[in-house]
C-alpha cells in the first residue's frame, strides 16, 4: 500500500506498533469480541446453572 502523505518522512519506514496493528485488524477483534463474552458470560453462566444441586 502506498503511503503518500500519510505521515512525516521519518515515519515512513517505522514499524506500526503492535496495539495499532491489533486495532487495525477487524477479524482479530471479531474473534476476541465473540470469544471473551462467550467464555466469561455464556460458558461460565451455563456451568453455574448445571451445578445447581437437587433438592433433598
Amino acid at each position: 500500500m502506498s503511503e503518500q502523505s500519510t505521515g512525516s518522512a521519518d515515519q515512513q519506514d517505522e514499524r506500526v506498533p503492535a496495539m495499532q496493528r491489533l486495532l487495525d485488524n477487524p477479524f482479530l477483534l471479531l474473534f476476541m469480541g465473540v470469544a471473551t463474552p462467550a467464555a466469561l458470560y455464556l460458558i461460565w453462566g451455563v456451568m453455574e446453572l448445571s451445578q445447581v444441586p437437587l433438592a433433598q
Binding site: 503511503e3 500519510t6 505521515g7 515515519q11 517505522e14 506500526v16 506498533p17 496495539m19 495499532q20 486495532l23
Partner: peptide
Amino acid sequence: LPPENRLWWKE
C-alpha cells in the same frame, strides 16, 4: 476520514 498520522498510536 482515516487518521492523518500513519502511526497514530504514537501521538
